[in-house]
Design a protein around this nucleic acid. Sequence first.
DNA 1: CAGTGGTCTAGACCACGCA
DNA 2: GCGTGGTCTAGACCACTGG
Lengths: 226, 226
Amino acid sequence: MNPARRIRDEIAGAIRSGEWRPGDRVPTEQELAARYGCARATVSKALGELAASGLVERRRKAGTFVAQPPVHSAVMTVPDLAELIAARGEAYRWTLLSVEHEAEGEDNCPGPALRIDGVHMAGGEPFALERRFIALGEVPEAMGADFATEAPGTWLLGHIPWTQARHVIRAVTPTRREAAALSTGAGAACLELDRTTWRAGRVVTHVRQLFRGDRFDLVAEFNAGP
Amino acid sequence: MNPARRIRDEIAGAIRSGEWRPGDRVPTEQELAARYGCARATVSKALGELAASGLVERRRKAGTFVAQPPVHSAVMTVPDLAELIAARGEAYRWTLLSVEHEAEGEDNCPGPALRIDGVHMAGGEPFALERRFIALGEVPEAMGADFATEAPGTWLLGHIPWTQARHVIRAVTPTRREAAALSTGAGAACLELDRTTWRAGRVVTHVRQLFRGDRFDLVAEFNAGP
DNA sequence: CAGTGGTCTAGACCACGCA
DNA sequence: GCGTGGTCTAGACCACTGG
């Protein structure tokens, strides 16, 4: 076994099992190097990975300590709708409702923009409503795209990879129009996913997706450490 | 500037700006070492960090490549309710409704368990309903805890740090009882957060929290790279 | 089988922050 | 000051895997 991996996993195990408690001091790099019979750089790499994953905190002069558990963050999977629906064994289809050219998009997507409305369908049934703004200042080629055949999210993935994004998740009661478009009851709870996407600090697109509460949920995993 | 940091940031910038596209080949460690005038180990560290953050993919013999953008994952903040409410400037209070000792908890928390029901209050108003199971096989000391004065989540944090967790987020319509307990309309959408928590592979606790849709939303950030 | 990343070593110097 | 982590070097060997 890798010395670095072994050191990392043994320390991670001691922390996760509760043997080492938050605030406990981890042995110094020199002590660990002596104990494991390896170079200090190897120990440094192992501790660096543990620090990067949040299991320990390192302070100069003071030493390395077991960190306080950050129970509050988790990695959430925001699925690609086409993939998600295909994985369920249902047929996916995108239905375009409208494309409008606007001089001023909205708060979350300023400047000239396209406003695209459509529906994601699963097995012939509406699955999610989508309203999207695409900043034409950032993605002028969106003017020439055909959003009737390809969902705008899919098109954007091919043209603007490597973005940063912010998601806001809410539970909302749909309007009558929305409920009708989703073929759901007027009072049925829906999950709203708002995503704003940047590239190099500038908004590329903003999308609001509305899901039937009885057909969609999000899953997030929290796994501290390597 | 750190050579390693500089290499890392310049490559990350080239990827995020779109200059280097997914699938593009990154120069070899030797080429980068020569270009930046540093040791190969330094380049290796920088590329390793980029790989750890998902910006590049490394394959032996083949080389290092710009990865496909994983638009589907984001880091979600699952707030500590007491902190969240305090940050809003409202008074936080936990109200215990009941504690039951059960021989068999439920699917998500098997074996003997405590079942605890209660309400998280913000500024005198109900903010979230909570039903929690605590596995007594894993946390026998929970029998002696006073869940009237301390919310079970807070108590657990002090006794079982460093767990792994899985969250499921849904939009639901509350039952009449739940709506009444939350002081909200019978048809108002609510956000449900289900969290199952493990330690060393065994379930420690399972909690279902129900929030008023008009008073709570979740935020997730996606920021690939360092 | 050759080139790439993966890992490790032994040593060095620096920066920081507590005493 | 002085001990800690932070970083870097030059070199080495290994493991994998694509051509």
